[in-house]
Amino acid sequence: MTSRSIVVVSGGVSQPSSTRLLADRLAEATVADLTARGIDTTLEVVELRGLAHDVVDMTLTGYARPDLAAAQAAVAGADGVIAVSPVFTASYAGLFKSFLDVLDTDALQGTPVLLGATGGTSRHSLVLEHAMRPVFAYLRADVVPTTVFAATDDWAEAGDDDVKPLPERVRRAAAELAERVAGRQRAARGGLYDAVPSFEDLLGGA
């Protein structure tokens, strides 16, 4: 069984956090989908709440303390990223954006990313498309088509999970991320890379 790594970036600032709850659900669904595809998955969670002071310090000094440096390295080395932020004042959290600001500009290049957000009302759901997606497009991440927003009412819905809108969106988005991560693995193992001729072949053996 092959192995891939998923890193979850949770921008929740409270404890307990609905942002972390959504991030966990997205991660669980993604891991389950990858497992069904025969891919073993390692999962790491980056809680930005605990890195807030380090993020501010790096913004001011340009120096990353060990915990922040480890989080940056985890994101840069991930085969897939799940990034979830709460919505404050009609946009993503400042801490969430500050963490992206202290990442290397190439850290997410080509990396499959699933975006999620939480808020008190579904009126904020477009934050994912008009605020978060453009930032990750600038970072050249490979953002999956389906984003997941969870309002307060989404957690309170009655009935079977199988018929709730939120679980269905979670499954769909997770499947899209898993497909991208699995496809990236296939390319790395063979096919695309194996088809590239060697420098010696290009020179005709000279």
Score class of each variant (00 low, 15 high):
M1Q: 09
T2W: 07
I6T: 04
I6L: 08
S10K: 02
V13A: 12
Q15V: 14
Q15I: 12
S18V: 12
R20C: 13
R20Q: 15
L21V: 10
L22K: 09
A23C: 02
A23S: 04
R25P: 09
R25N: 09
R25Y: 07
A27M: 05
A27R: 08
A27G: 08
T30Y: 00
L34F: 02
A36M: 09
R37D: 00
I39L: 14
T42S: 12
T42G: 08
L48T: 06
G50F: 09
M58Y: 06
T59G: 15
T59M: 07
Y63K: 13
Y63C: 15
A64D: 02
A64K: 09
R65H: 07
A70P: 13
A73G: 03
A76T: 15
A76K: 08
A78F: 04
G80R: 03
V84Y: 01
V84I: 04
S85Q: 06
P86Y: 14
V87A: 05
V87F: 00
F88Y: 11
F88D: 03
T89Y: 06
Y92K: 02
A93S: 11
F96K: 15
K97P: 02
S98G: 06
L100E: 01
V102D: 01
L103N: 04
L103V: 01
D104F: 10
D104M: 01
D104R: 12
D106V: 13
A107R: 09
L108P: 00
L114A: 05
L114W: 01
L115P: 02
L115N: 03
G116C: 05
A117I: 02
T121Y: 15
T121S: 15
E129D: 12
M132R: 12
R133Q: 00
P134Q: 01
P134F: 03
V135K: 10
Y138K: 11
V143L: 05
V144A: 07
T146I: 12
A150P: 02
A151T: 15
A151C: 11
T152E: 12
D154N: 04
W155Y: 01
W155S: 10
W155Q: 11
G159P: 13
L166W: 15
E168D: 15
V170Y: 08
A173Q: 04
E179D: 14
R180F: 07
V181W: 08
A182W: 00
A187F: 00
A188V: 11
L192W: 15
L192I: 10
Y193D: 03
D194A: 15
D194F: 14
A195F: 07
V196N: 08
F199E: 10
E200C: 11
E200R: 14
G204Y: 05
G204S: 10
A206D: 11
